[in-house]
Design a protein around this nucleic acid. Structure first.
Lengths: 236, 236
DNA sequence: TCGTGTCTTTACCAAATGGTAAAAAAGTGA
DNA sequence: TCACTTTTTTACCATTTGGTAAAGACACGA
């Protein structure tokens, strides 16, 4: 009688392909494979990135379901049908955003050098993560929203991309501990605590801004505190 | 042309009072003030708490906008009009939930004893918060969702309830530091880091469960790690 | 300047969703 | 059992919203 809601809004009536990614081809002499889609025109690049920028703004502050195509369209300065010319649908925009941001988000973790000085590497990682949380809070919130809802659109990405990197990095950290250059602790929880403490400043900004109105103390204070916290933890 | 969305769905046509809270009174001999609303009947108590339990389940996993009255109704085993007999609307349910949970959520902070042993008190607080995150993840996620969206319905609560408590507790911690019983650090950021690290296990469970599938290591491992982390930070 | 393909707008639609009116059903005290 | 109140159901409604069709505007090479 009262079924679960269709979380994607009105049902799409036909598979909505052929909009941008798959299209008929006008062969170019330069192009090696005439069966590949054309390179995006300047206008396409501009509008697609406009839409993604607008979507980041909207999705990150209202969540997926809390955002509407109209909002994104207004923010992007385009009409709703027009953004649907560039993307197959709301979900397509969201997924595109998430996958694009995934690499940005994981970069600092990749940059940790297994041959570097352990304490330096880890503290640098903390600082980079904190800088990102402060400078790119929308990106942080976008991910937080997605994970909070149980990662419905990013679950596979987590398993395929994040998990292997995570396993690799925890192994590196474990080896560092074996050398005695940093104190022993659970590397997995160490990474969790770094993520939690840094992203907290982006994800819970509405709270921290109320509790600690002084922006300067919030930002550089966070840096000092986290340095102290992790320096003490890692000291051999 | 393309306006912002009305985030509350269809506009309500009239002020929707008189549903439960305000109703005509049949005077009782026992009641001292016959102009006060009647005490809720057994059936009302049962159904209201059923609805709140269902709403906690639904709101915490889909967010406010991602949840529908039908979902809540189904989960509660009632019909949609029936839950609207008990609550004035979707927002009323959400607000009721949030205010009820606020005190549960702040209790551990209140219980910190200014006259206790600083390290013990703070570690006990960390452990209580972690236990709550693990045992009441839905409550944690409900708050996280609300804060992430900028606390649209809880902002005033934060200022009125949390801020004074926060200021008081950071002052207590500062006094503890003055006695030399714990190391100096910024008390505000100390509390932030406790909240961040503990709630992370509830709010980002979708992630931690992928990265650390072993439930035992996730839970007791977190406890050990956080004990270590904060013991080292606080050691004078 | 003409024609072809790209981009944008106008005018829609169907489903989902929050909410309501009103009558039926179930309790309840006397 | 009767009268009265409380609770539940049935049948709706108005907006919102994701999405589409189709025509028009635009760009640009030949």
């Amino acid at each position: 009688m009262y079924g679960l809601p269709n979380h994607e809004g009105p049902a799409l009536k036909r598979s909505n392909l052929g909009h941008y990614k798959v299209r008929s081809v006008t062969p170019r002499v330069i192009d090696s494979d005439p069966n590949l889609p054309k390179a995006p025109s300047r206008i396409q690049q501009r509008n697609r990135s406009r839409i993604l920028e607008a979507a980041l703004e909207v999705f990150s502050s209202h969540g997926y379901r809390g955002s509407t195509l109209d909002q994104i369209a207004t923010e992007a300065g385009l009409s709703k049908p027009n953004i649907l010319y560039y993307f197959a649908g709301k979900e397509d925009i969201h997924v595109t955003l998430l996958s694009q941001l995934m690499s940005t988000w994981l970069d600092p973790l990749k940059e940790m050098d297994p041959n570097g000085e352990p304490i330096e590497e880890l503290l640098a990682y903390v600082h980079r993560k904190l800088d990102m949380a402060i400078e790119l809070p929308r990106e942080s919130r976008l991910f937080a929203n997605e994970i909070l809802q149980g990662a419905p659109r990013m679950g596979p990405h987590l398993v395929a991309d994040l998990k292997p990197l995570f396993d690799d990095r925890t192994a590196v950290i474990l080896r560092w501990m074996d050398t005695g250059k940093i104190a022993r602790s659970d590397p997995a929880h160490l990474l969790f605590s770094i993520w939690a403490t840094t992203q907290h400043y982006a994800d819970f900004a509405a709270q921290t801004e109320v509790l600690l109105p002084d922006t300067e103390r919030r930002h550089s204070g966070a840096r000092d505190f986290l340095t102290q916290l992790f320096t003490k933890l890692l000291a051999p």
